[in-house]
Design a binder for these strands. Structure first.
Lengths: 115, 115
DNA sequence: CCAATACTTAAGTGTGTGCTTAACCAATCG
DNA sequence: CGATTGGTTAAGCACACACTTAAGTATTGG
């Protein structure tokens, strides 16, 4: 749900704001060009995703960023990169092998037995 | 657009698949539980976001992952973390200052002048 | 106690998204 | 050639999404 939560520009703005420290719902809503209920709906999505936590004290709900949750995205990205680099390594191995074959058996680019 | 592109599970699957190397449209579609046009639509979103590039040779379109484009997400995440840590630093400074005041002037937790 | 503040809930609306089927086009194969 | 493969285009449909306004509920300050 984290990717979905971050797919909306308004929600990313809210996350950016919360990166600078906790804030109340109306503080978050103030700079945004939409009604307060709309902001609350965004906050619900963010909270459901685990990116934001909040607690109500008196009549004011204070929201904070759950930085740890950013790992979800980070990890996914990292995994893609790792897979990609492993692929390049294998490609390198393949080319090395080809080069070896070329030296021992020029013009034949496979490893199959000769009949 | 990158965040939006990655918000869909099917598109993330496609990116994961392309992480292991380039693939044709039908290769990408084969394991997915939907029609080929649906997959093509996902590929269009991914291509518009810059995460995927493709070129057609003969009648087969080969798609590849643009790993570099993952930086967009990575950078945003990193920036959030940096902001967060700067905030914690400032909080640390504030607490240090308080501790200093506590030692020189116990019971007064502000820095204002005594009248 | 009354009014203002800080949300909260509910209901409705236009638009976007993910998918479908059907028809089509172009390259390749027997 | 005609059939198959690989992909594209178009139209339509159901549901999700980002909002809105209106009406509520607590909490708090005067």
């Amino acid at each position: 749900m984290v990717f979905h939560a971050l797919s909306d520009p308004t929600r990313r703005l809210i996350v950016e704001r919360l990166g600078q420290g906790a804030a109340s719902v109306s503080e978050l809503a103030a700079p945004l060009p939409m009604s307060l209920p709309a902001v609350v709906q965004h906050l619900q999505v963010l909270e459901a995703s685990g990116l934001v936590a909040s607690e109500k004290v008196g009549r004011v709900r204070t929201c904070r960023l759950v930085v740890k949750r950013l790992d979800t995205v980070q990890d996914w990205i990292d995994e893609r990169r790792r897979t990609w680099e492993r692929r390049l390594d294998r490609l390198g191995d393949f080319l090395d092998e080809q080069a070896r074959n070329d030296r021992t058996n020029p013009t034949n680019h496979t490893t199959e037995e000769q009949s």
